[in-house]
């Protein structure tokens, strides 16, 4: 009964959309990389770097949107590193990705310690505030859930639409998808597979960093260690769950976030108080694995995912 009450409350759905936002951004980033044929396991570290860079920029006096741009540029920097190593040099995408995650995470923590040597608790910034879209926010339930979020969340939804249009309605998107399916055909058209894949990884990494920045600039107003806490890995699962399609991946992110918001609330009910809290924290990860089991058989994996392309080799 209590669970039903939770499910029909507007504040629950508003929380779900808020929790979904960083996942949506980073999932779109990963999806673009993988559609071009590159698995980017740097995602977890790039989100950490983005979270710090955006927050630090605002803390040092820039505007909020400039902070978002700074986070994006930092993410693109790590994307450049990843793509140089994995695309023209064709190195193992698993190893490079994990290396980029370690490098991005440790250099972020290093920079944090250098920038703020003697603080016990990290300073706060004036984060993004919710903006109620006129008229739309008056719709019952939906209005509060979807149209009373911060502008950062609206940006995330806009980026899903933009990614979808880019992938399916533009020549660039066709080239990206072809690079992930049949790079030899792309090369035969006189296009550079290297340039397409590198571009996709760099842009995708920028999106991942924005996902991280949402945590410090909209969900919270400060930077903490361990704040990303495996969200990047969840996004890798969400891309598979969404069968490499932006719309389905968005749906997956919202469902996952709704489940996450639900477990937090059920913990506080009478029935949830008797269960160890770790069970609730485990549930989203277990759910992700179950979801993968259900969809993996049917998933349309990009045919050239994780296959390096070396021109002239056949």
């Amino acid at each position: 009964m209590e669970i039903l009450d939770i499910l029909i409350s507007a504040s629950f759905w508003a929380a779900a959309i808020r929790i979904a936002t960083p996942l949506i951004l980073a999932t779109m980033g990963e999806l673009i990389c993988e559609r071009a044929g590159v698995l980017n396991l740097g995602i977890e570290g790039i989100m950490v770097a983005g979270a710090f860079a955006g927050w630090m920029a605002v803390y040092s006096g820039t505007g909020l949107w400039v902070g978002v741009a700074v986070a994006m540029v930092v993410g693109m920097g790590f994307g450049l590193l990843h793509s140089v190593l994995t695309v023209p040099f064709g190195l193992s995408q698993h190893v490079v990705g994990l290396g980029v995650t370690l490098l991005a995470t440790s250099s972020t923590y290093y920079a944090y310690r250098l920038a703020l040597p003697q603080v016990n608790s990290p300073p706060k910034i004036d984060a993004f505030q919710p903006y109620e879209i006129p008229l739309l926010s008056d719709i019952p339930l939906l209005g509060q859930a979807l149209f009373s979020q911060t502008p950062f969340t609206y940006l995330a939804f806009a980026l899903v639409a933009a990614t979808s249009v880019m992938l399916y309605r533009t020549p660039v998107g066709l080239a990206v998808r072809a690079a992930g399916e049949s790079p030899a055909a792309v090369a035969a058209q006189g296009l550079s597979v290297t340039a397409i894949r590198m571009g996709a990884v760099i842009v995708g990494s920028g999106f991942m960093a924005m996902g991280g920045a949402f945590l410090t600039m909209s969900a919270f107003d400060s930077f903490f260690f361990e704040m990303v806490n495996g969200r990047g890995w969840i996004c890798i699962a969400l891309v598979v769950f969404g069968s490499w399609m932006p719309g389905k991946a968005l749906l997956g992110a919202v469902l996952f976030a709704a489940f996450d918001a639900l477990q937090i609330r059920v913990q506080q009910t009478g029935f949830g108080a008797d269960i160890p809290y770790q069970i609730f924290l485990m549930a989203p990860y277990i759910l992700s694995i179950v979801a993968l089991v259900l969809v993996s058989r049917r998933a349309q994996v990009p045919a050239a995912l994780m296959v390096p392309f070396n021109k002239g080799e056949r």
Binding site: L81, L85, F89, L91, S92, V95, V96, G99, V100, L102, L103, T105, S106, S107, Y109, Y110, R113, L114
Partner: peptide, 18 residues
């Protein structure tokens, strides 16, 4: 800051695979 050790390892890993 002690995070230098992790940065060194990440750098060593990426440069070494290359």
């Amino acid at each position: 800051p002690t995070y230098l050790a992790d940065m060194m390892l990440a750098t060593a890993l990426l440069l070494m695979v290359l």
